[in-house]
Nucleic acid binder design. Structure first.
Lengths: 175, 175
DNA sequence: CTCGTATGATACATATCTGTCTCATTAAAG
DNA sequence: CTTTAATGAGACAGATATGTATCATACGAG
């Protein structure tokens, strides 16, 4: 029940952040009153979805990092783990949350990504002259693009992470 | 007057697509009634902003393409011309328009970009094995990232296009 | 200066969304 | 089978945004 509502909210609010709760309830196959029983106010629902999205990406990345040897392998594992969660990204990007906890976690995630960039530089995978935030933004962008292309059916899910990693490190130019 | 309202709408609705027309009018320094005189309904305003954004990007790219020798030079000029229009991108991305004309123009722009990718492949700038839409999506992403970093003050505007082009073609990896 | 037009402020009716409440029904636990 | 809790449907009031209408004022053209 709770889960069905949260899934529906990711889908509906991800496409249109201004959608009504009636739409979310309908998508979840649930009465509007029941939605309010689980999430008294709209903000409660939004906060719960944000928290759930972040929990899932954190868990996915944590599992991916487990006994990964190099930073490059870590990056590839993270891409493989996170690209399928692209709809979560879409949802988070579509909102501008003012919640303090949410903002703090977002900052922490960004800092973790920047730390990964540092490691990649230390291991000579990423060029040292690449700006830190530029690199982090590019990783994010590759995740976004890969998910979009997979969702559109133009790219096989199995190929997505490798293509993203290759593009990120070597670009699209002809050798 | 009209222009001031459209500028305000790009700013306000770009940040928050659900913002009220009162906010747009206030940002424009205009009475709410005057806004309705120029744009009878909300949809009229939104459609006008979309059309204006597309006109500006089309004009910018058309000027950039003027007597550009190679496809690579065309790409660089387009990046230089379009990155400063990032707020227009932000606005367009924040909306999901159902207007037929708007959708048709969007498809046309996308096809133009894909055609540029084809030219880049013919000139051996982009590797032939790079998927067409993947490449186009990456060009879009570089524009987005570059504008974001410039807007955040982390990147000099003069460096943005070159960095974007370099990242697009050669990636972030160490040579 | 005078007239006409555009603007801002305000009031108003309408529509939509939100959150609460009630009630009948259903499903599960005892 | 009985009881209890959860659900769906619907009614309801309040809040907010929208679109229209009115009126006084300021600004510019003639």
């Amino acid at each position: 029940m709770r889960e069905a509502i949260l899934d529906a909210a990711i889908d509906v609010l991800g496409r249109n952040p201004g959608a009504s709760l009636a739409e979310v309830a309908a998508r979840a196959g649930v009465g509007r009153a029941s939605l309010h029983r689980h999430f008294p106010a709209r903000d409660d629902l939004v906060a719960a979805v944000i928290r759930r999205c972040m929990d899932e990406t954190d868990a996915a990345t944590a599992a991916a990092v487990q006994d990964a040897g190099s930073a490059r392998e870590t990056l590839l594992r993270v891409l493989k783990a996170v690209i399928p969660l692209g709809d979560r990204y879409h949802f988070l990007a579509s909102l501008s949350s003012t919640d303090a906890e949410v903002r703090a976690r977002y900052e922490a995630d960004l800092e973790w990504l920047a730390g990964l960039v540092d490691s990649l530089k230390k291991e000579s995978v990423i060029a040292p002259e690449a700006p830190r935030f530029w690199a982090a933004a590019n990783i994010d962008a590759q995740i976004w693009i890969a998910w979009t292309e997979v969702a559109a059916g133009r790219l096989a899910a199995a190929d997505a992470a490798d293509l993203a990693l290759h593009t990120l490190l070597e670009g699209l130019g002809k050798r």
